[in-house]
């Protein structure tokens, strides 16, 4: 008899534990987009590193010395090449990001385009678009050295803003990008290095961590 009571209490306890688990998972599934893939971070990082290296050689081969605190005058043809590199990097990174996220959302049985991912994208893009316009303005005003720091700062803020709707880890990545950007504000001329660390190395580290933690 006692045995029976203990056993049924045990089973009930398990049921309650499962109930709590279920509540937690439903709250999580309905309020956070959990299909962001770590792999997209890794790929974005690698693409960014290649782009940084490519830009470095572009500048070097055109006789420009990238590093240093002097204001540089870049020829128009070089600027065009750099802008093309920039846009191509962005497109490739977004493409792989979306691709891996679709894969993961299939595994999670979470719709890729639901109210959560919409909220995530909107919250990510508001600071990001503002930052983009800011960078274009800097470009027109000739403050080329400030573009990399500003990109890092706004990207960090965008991540922090979007993290409410996905993994908390995204917020920490945001802090790292923000701090890196703020430091590089005072080391104008070394923007490319900071840019490579922020968009390259940090993304790869973050991607591997996410892959280990949630895969």
């Amino acid at each position: 008899m006692i045995n029976f009571v203990i056993q049924s209490t045990f089973i009930m306890n398990n049921k309650h534990q499962d109930d709590i688990e279920h509540i937690r998972s439903m709250m999580e599934r309905s309020s956070r987009f959990i299909s962001l893939s770590g792999m997209s971070g890794v790929i974005a990082g690698i693409v960014a590193l290649i782009a940084a290296l490519f830009s470095y050689y572009l500048i070097k081969n055109n006789g420009g010395a990238y590093f240093g605190n002097k204001p540089v005058n870049l020829p128009a043809s070089l600027l065009t090449k750099l802008i093309v590199t920039c846009v191509a990097t962005l497109l490739i990174a977004i493409f792989f990001g979306v691709y891996f996220t679709i894969q993961k959302s299939k595994r999670n049985h979470q719709k890729i385009w639901n109210s959560l991912s919409k909220r995530l994208v909107v919250n990510l893009f508001i600071p990001l678009v503002a930052g983009g316009i800011f960078c274009i303005a800097l470009f027109y005003q000739g403050h080329l050295g400030l573009i990399a720091p500003v990109m890092l700062i706004f990207y960090g803020l965008a991540l922090m803003n979007a993290s409410k709707y996905t993994f908390n880890d995204v917020e920490y990545l945001g802090y790292c990008e923000l701090i890196l950007g703020l430091i590089s504000l005072f080391l104008v001329g070394y923007g490319l290095i900071f840019w490579a660390i922020g968009f390259g190395v940090l993304h790869i580290v973050y991607g591997i961590m996410m892959q280990k933690k949630y895969h």
Binding site: H22, M26, M27, S30, K111, S115
Partner: peptide, 27 residues
Amino acid sequence: SRIRLGIMSILMVNEWVEFKEMKETLD
């Protein structure tokens, strides 16, 4: 019931939730 528990959990952390969305989350 697990489903009622699920519905309430979703509504505790969201304001208005649409039928279709609820259905997809609960599967």
